[in-house]
Amino acid sequence: MIPLSWYLFFSAALFTIGLFGVLTRRNVIAILLGIELMLNAVNVNLVAFWRYGDVAAMTGQVFAIIVFAVAAAEVSAGLALVISVYRRSNTVVAEDLDLLKF
């Protein structure tokens, strides 16, 4: 039997890798890829806790699905922004996109 901790460590690792990607990648799309990894890490946690908790209470799975919806919304809107930005300023490098600075 696999202990719960394995899943948690796995998810923590995945989350951390995603976070690293988010913090360091230059390409905005790559940042979004990192965010996907983080969201997946969360989902692994949710489902693992569902499996190791009360199976009949579907909270974990329900929220995993909600996370899917959130991820879908995030990706679609995020990538749309990226495309729009690219069309305007011809770049997808996060650091170059600082129009909002003071």
């Binding site: 699905i65 899917f68 879908a72 749309a80 495309i83």
Partner: peptide, 19 residues
């Protein structure tokens, strides 16, 4: 950009189907 839009609409309905 239509490719993106079709994929986007598909994504939304895909998630919808999941629900």
């Amino acid at each position: 950009v239509q490719y993106y839009i079709f994929a986007l609409v598909f994504l939304v309905f895909d998630v919808e189907a999941v629900f």
